[in-house]
Design a binder for these strands. Sequence first.
DNA 1: TAAGTTACCTTACGAGGTAAGGTACACAGT
DNA 2: ACTGTGTACCTTACCTCGTAAGGTAACTTA
Lengths: 229, 229
Amino acid sequence: MAAKAFREPLSRERVLAAAVVLADAEGIKALTMRRLAADLGVEAMSLYYHLPGKEALLDGVVETVVAEIHDAVGRPDMTKPDGDWRTRLRQRFLAAREVMLRHPWAPGLLGSRRTIPAGVVAYYDGIVGTLVGAGFSYHLAHRALHAFGSLPLGFVQEIFSPASAGGGMEVDAAEADLTAMAEALPHLTAMVATEIHDVTDPTLGWCDGQVEFEFTLDLLLDGLERLRG
Amino acid sequence: MAAKAFREPLSRERVLAAAVVLADAEGIKALTMRRLAADLGVEAMSLYYHLPGKEALLDGVVETVVAEIHDAVGRPDMTKPDGDWRTRLRQRFLAAREVMLRHPWAPGLLGSRRTIPAGVVAYYDGIVGTLVGAGFSYHLAHRALHAFGSLPLGFVQEIFSPASAGGGMEVDAAEADLTAMAEALPHLTAMVATEIHDVTDPTLGWCDGQVEFEFTLDLLLDGLERLRG
DNA sequence: TAAGTTACCTTACGAGGTAAGGTACACAGT
DNA sequence: ACTGTGTACCTTACCTCGTAAGGTAACTTA
């Protein structure tokens, strides 16, 4: 009966884990110091014992997501050329994408950080290792990194991305007033009319389906393969 | 002598222009309602006569930048195939990039909006027009749009991007403690050692030089050219 | 001249991050 | 037992920010 009314003490890890849960559940806007503290059953200022401030919290959250990618991708010391370099990178990037689909707020957060998480650097180191192991020059590997952009982390810069979850805008706009739209935007209208397909799948932004992601990925991988050697 | 102490009245356009100037000068974080009002010589609440609120202000700022791209790119009704489709798109994207280099905060802001500026849609309509005019199917044109990502707007998703201006991180990290870095990140270290070059040019984030941008662009354009027909 | 309209201001509230300092308890050494 | 010393959390308060509510002065129109 005299059960422990003690809560187990906080820690940086517990705080960060709770922050990820909060962001997943209610979006990155809901991740405030007061709200996070409330979710953890403490007051806001108590968080400052475990973290220097809000920026550090966000950095830590990013770090947590990157660690999740690391786990999903497997340790990056698989430099030994046991398979085609394209296949290996493809698998990594697609594994990263699965993580990102669980955290739709992560791409935006990652882009907003001004310091690069150490885990990301290590991750990219593995990519460079795979490339040079496959015969790429460091020069071309460098170019490749830039060309990949955020693909290794499982997302692409989507202009047509509602901040919340997936799709529907295409359909909405089409239903709004199709005639006016067809007049002002003849080519897009024609394209949409031809391309009305699975817009309702829950993905990372507008039309950023698995198919689109892999198309872009293969376009780059094939192009790089031609430049290799 | 009895010169007009009247200031000329505000307008949505003047407010938005001042907002762009502020963001250019001191970053997007400095763009608050009070600060913007002060720069315009009025009180914060006066802005609400011309704009519904902060979100509308940011939407308007994005709209302003997109309009600037439109001007730089030329009107998108140049659908007539007077040149190679690759050359035409390349020119557009590079013109857009020049605009973005003047507004380093714009990529992040664009990515954070949940509504798509109408100007962007019109711009992409022109791109689709160019593609289908060159023999692309609507299907492939759709894929191409996604593959391009934010390239048409003149930037790429840069993971290694300090929020402020360009470069230097590579050098900083290298100078920090090279030995420890070489141990933990062998491939990146080797690459950096091989690739130390113009990191000091003022560009959009880490290493996102003109060369890198064009490399990615051509990689995609060449890949699409092969898929055309 | 009275009523509206336009453009800007004053006041105030609540939410958010956080500086400064306080409290309660565990445990170590004397 | 007495007194640190450190850990983990709390209270209060300040400042910035967006913005709701309502006020005011000048100009227009009838």
